[in-house]
Simulated scan of single mutants.
Amino acid sequence: MGRAGAATRRRLTLGTAVLSAAALLAVSLPQEAGAAVTGCGGRKVRTLHFATGSVLVHKRGGYVCALTVPEKPGTKREMSVGVRARGGRAVVDAGRFARRAGPVTVHAGNRCVWVTGKVAKSSVSSGWILC
């Protein structure tokens, strides 16, 4: 093989390296259906189930984060998620979504929080939790 063979080999090696890096990146990124539907950091502390979906609640430090995921993602429909720390105002994300509403985050410190979620006509309300 001459120069043309060496150049082709280099291009193939580079192409293989780029494809391998892309594959590793795709595998390591969060997937919508898995634990990383979230976008919330910290540890999951509650899952509030209701007829048409669930609200995932995470906590890290003094922050509480929540998001609503539908039972059957893919079709746009009315969804919402809200988190309110006791003594504070609710932070809400509402609209027509296909995969999730949120995430929304509040600084709760050591205060209780009230979490709500809705998908279509079904909803959940936690009452004061994480006290």
Rank of each mutant, 00 (worst) to 15 (best):
R3I: 13
R3L: 15
R3M: 13
R3G: 15
G5S: 12
A6I: 10
A7S: 14
R9P: 00
L12N: 13
L12E: 15
L12R: 12
V18D: 07
V18T: 05
S20H: 05
A21E: 07
A21L: 10
A22C: 07
A22W: 06
A23Y: 10
A23C: 07
A26V: 03
V27R: 14
P30R: 00
P30V: 00
Q31L: 09
E32S: 12
A33L: 15
G34A: 13
A35E: 15
A36P: 06
V37A: 13
V37W: 01
T38G: 15
C40P: 01
C40E: 00
G41Q: 03
R43G: 14
R43F: 11
R46D: 05
T47W: 01
H49G: 13
H49F: 13
T52K: 14
T52A: 15
T52N: 15
G53R: 02
S54T: 05
S54R: 13
V57Q: 11
V57T: 05
V57G: 12
H58D: 15
H58C: 13
G61S: 03
G61R: 01
G62N: 11
G62P: 04
G62S: 11
C65I: 06
L67A: 11
T68M: 01
T68N: 09
P70C: 00
P70R: 02
E71C: 02
E71N: 10
P73Y: 03
P73A: 04
P73F: 01
P73D: 05
G74Y: 04
M79H: 00
M79P: 07
G82R: 07
V83P: 02
R84F: 01
G87M: 06
G87Q: 05
G88I: 01
R89N: 13
A90V: 00
A90S: 08
V92K: 09
V92D: 04
V92L: 05
A94E: 10
A94P: 07
A94F: 02
A94L: 08
G95H: 06
R96H: 15
R96D: 15
R96W: 14
A98P: 12
A98S: 11
R99S: 14
A101L: 09
A101Y: 04
P103R: 00
G109D: 06
R111S: 13
R111W: 00
C112R: 09
C112W: 04
C112D: 09
W114M: 13
V115D: 12
V115W: 10
T116K: 09
T116M: 08
G117I: 03
V119G: 02
A120D: 14
K121A: 13
V124K: 10
L130S: 07
L130K: 01
L130A: 09
L130H: 12
C131W: 05
C131N: 06
